[in-house]
């Protein structure tokens, strides 16, 4: 579905990713784990065309999308929910969804505001509220819903659980599992193992811009030294 090969990228001359590799299979939920500063967000931004890759390859559904303008990448069916959520604060919930709306795409679930309000009943109840006047959890739901309006076949979630109350964490996790059932592939960044555990089939661990482990969730449990080494203090 999505494949990153020997990717080198960063901010200007500050390099963050070093020959980074990653693969996301169809219908799979993969957690990209790593401490902050390890390069997780940079990886997603580079995939999304928000940062320029210096070298390497990014393939999505067997087409190269490396360094395409981000609107084209989005139209190819790759959705992106940034860490800061970046809700349009002056726009209402309904308007935020409208910005994300794209025509239906073959082979991907088709979303409408009504369908999304079933998934996120909260949002449905306050469609006229401005993005700036929402709680963190509501913003996260809106950010996901807004991306789904583009009818993507895969989505990238950057730390979707950050700053959310435990109950909300559970409901966002339920949403992600629901999306998996709908057939979406999901790649999420996480520095928190407990959250990753809620949703991921597989984990990749990134440290200092390199992929240093890839395997199943259960493998991680049988090998605690990995955790100690890459995630703990």
């Amino acid at each position: 579905m999505l494949e990153l090969r020997r990717l080198n990228a960063g901010y200007g001359r500050a390099q963050v990713l070093f020959d980074f590799e990653l693969a996301l299979g169809a219908g799979e939920v993969v957690a990209l784990l790593g401490r902050n500063g390890a390069g997780k967000s940079t990886a997603l931004k580079t995939v999304m065309g928000l940062l320029q890759a210096v070298s390497g390859e990014v393939r999505f559904e067997n087409k190269s999308i490396k360094n395409l303008p981000s609107y084209q990448i989005a139209r190819h069916g790759l959705g992106y929910v940034p860490e800061e959520r970046r809700i349009f604060a002056d726009l209402t919930i309904a308007e935020n969804l409208e910005v994300g709306r794209r025509p239906p795409r073959d082979g991907a679930p088709h979303w409408t505001p009504e369908k999304l309000f079933d998934l996120f009943p909260n949002l449905g109840r306050m469609q006229a509220r401005r993005g700036g006047h929402m709680s963190g959890g509501e913003q996260q739901m809106l950010a996901i819903a807004r991306t789904l309006m583009g009818n993507p076949s895969a989505i990238l979630l950057d730390e979707p659980f950050e700053g959310l109350a435990p109950l909300i964490v559970e409901s966002v996790a339920a949403t992600i599992r629901e999306l998996k059932r709908e057939g979406l592939s999901v790649l999420l960044c996480e520095q928190n193992l407990r959250y990753a555990r809620l949703v991921a089939d597989r984990v990749c661990i990134i440290e200092k811009g390199r992929l240093c482990h890839a395997g199943s969730m259960s493998e991680l449990d049988t090998n605690p030294s990995l955790l100690q080494r890459y995630l703990s203090v």
Binding site: R35, N192, Y195
Partner: peptide, 14 residues
Amino acid sequence: QVRRVYLGEEAAHA
């Protein structure tokens, strides 16, 4: 507490 904020769980077994 530090372990909790970094790892997100009681990494007691680690």
